[in-house]
Amino acid sequence: MSSLFIAGHEFHSRLFTGTGKYASADAMMDSLTASESELVTLSLRRMDLKNQTDNILKPLQQQGIKLLPNTSGARTAKEAVFAAELAREALQTNWVKLEIHPDPRYLMPDGMETLLAAEELIKKGFVVMPYVHADPVLCKRLEEVGCQCVMPLGSPIGSNMGLASRPFLEIIIEQSTVPVIVDAGIGAPSDAALALEIGADAVLVNTAMAVARQPAQMGKAFRLAVEAGRMAYESGLGERRVQAQATSPLTDFLGALS
């Protein structure tokens, strides 16, 4: 199985993961370890001055996992740029998952603000990974302004609806010259496998692993599915056809019985 390169960084695993919604830091670490993910997302928020926050940074850093801060909470390009600058300072990385969703109900990404923010962040030296609709035109525009990959959604965040956007993902995959990472909505390992089979370079999974009854086992299930999907893609899948085509030679020796 080939490695994935983004901005010159080599990933052996094509499974990227989120750190949200886990019941505990231990459950998260067990799940991420089993998944063998090499890139995890984190968020920023205003510090809770009254309570001590569960420190998840240390175990992630000890494991050597690359951290990808997101701009979640930003509703405009301006807010996202500010969030990215804060995140760069907080986590000492110029990588950022750019996400701008002004609508809290469906968390639909705002493509126009995302493009504006991407352009500005790239000028400021960031490696920008934009979370967007499965919009082939927008993905091309983001590539043209210098995004190092694109992250189109499969279906709404946390919805577990899988690759509802499949026909559009296929166009994006066909046209893109930067890695395509399917983000959001991947509810089952089979969704992840399908994404890789159709040629996505990686997937980002969070909810499906975090809310599983056994997050560690689910982490492993996703690892295997992603590996299987990628291997199938690299091996070359057979063509689909309506008519049957025999796998055994159709001989007439049974004709002797009649």
Binding site: N70, E89, L91
Partner: peptide, 24 residues
Amino acid sequence: KSLWRSTELNEQSQVFIFESIAGG
């Protein structure tokens, strides 16, 4: 961070501190 020690605050300072937390 390199400027935290030398940055002086005054009564007009609007300070925001952010922390990293779990997220997708």
